[in-house]
Computed example of a mutant assay.
Amino acid sequence: MEYNEFITHVQSLAQSNSREEAESATRATLETLKERVPGDEIQDLARQLPQELGNYLQGREAENEQSFNLQEFIMRVSQKENIEPTTTAIHVRAVFAVLQNAVNPEKFAKLHTYFSHDYEELFTTAPTSEAPAV
């Protein structure tokens, strides 16, 4: 998936009014993801994304991951985006849904193992290519 396609999907899923908001949401979510997942795993994820997105996951290879719940994850993203947590939660869900479609299923499943049960809602989105027909 190309960078522009990724951002367009985030913008659509988040029902965002601007591309800049979708870019900010993506950057903030990926930077927070970087704080939560071990460095080697985050680097594997970065390699599967367009370089512009992978760059947001760079820079903490020597650091240990931090353990924090979904509420803290959303608060951290909210601070980075400088918006209300309620809107941030919508953005985070959109980024995770697009991320699920942008990387191989095994990598996304492995990523899931680093998150506690309270994050489950971020991992239950069906890939768009496998969404059931209505």
Rank of each mutant, 00 (worst) to 15 (best):
G39E: 02
N82T: 11
I90Y: 05
L30G: 09
T26S: 15
L13D: 06
T26C: 09
Q100W: 00
L30C: 12
P50R: 07
P85I: 05
E23Q: 12
T124E: 12
A28Q: 01
R19A: 05
N64W: 02
E52N: 09
T8I: 08
Q15L: 11
A97Q: 08
Q71R: 12
Q51D: 14
H112Y: 11
E72M: 07
L99S: 04
E84F: 11
T86W: 06
T86C: 01
F108K: 09
I90V: 15
K80D: 03
K80Y: 10
E84D: 15
L111H: 00
E20G: 10
E5C: 04
E23H: 03
F68L: 11
T113N: 13
K34L: 10
A46T: 02
A133P: 05
E81G: 04
T113I: 10
T29R: 01
E130L: 13
T125H: 07
T113M: 15
K80F: 11
V134F: 13
L122N: 04
E120F: 06
E81Y: 03
E61H: 12
H9N: 13
V37P: 00
E121A: 11
I90C: 07
H91C: 05
V37H: 00
V98T: 05
D118A: 03
H117I: 07
I74S: 04
I74M: 06
A131V: 13
N69E: 06
A28F: 05
I42D: 00
V98Y: 01
Q79V: 14
Q100G: 12
Q15S: 12
A109R: 08
A97P: 01
T88V: 02
L122C: 05
T26D: 07
Y119V: 01
T88L: 01
Y114I: 06
S129V: 11
T88W: 00
L49I: 01
I7Q: 04
S67A: 10
I7Y: 05
E52G: 06
K34E: 07
S67Y: 06
Y114W: 08
S18Y: 03
S78C: 12
A28R: 00
P105T: 09
N101Q: 13
E61T: 13
K34G: 01
E120W: 07
R76D: 04
H9S: 12
Y56V: 03
V77P: 01
Q66F: 09
Q71M: 05
D40P: 02
P38M: 04
N101G: 15
L111T: 00
E20K: 11
A14G: 15
N82A: 14
L99F: 02
V10K: 03
S16H: 03
F108M: 12
T125I: 10
E84A: 12
S67T: 11
E52F: 04
Y56E: 09
V77A: 13
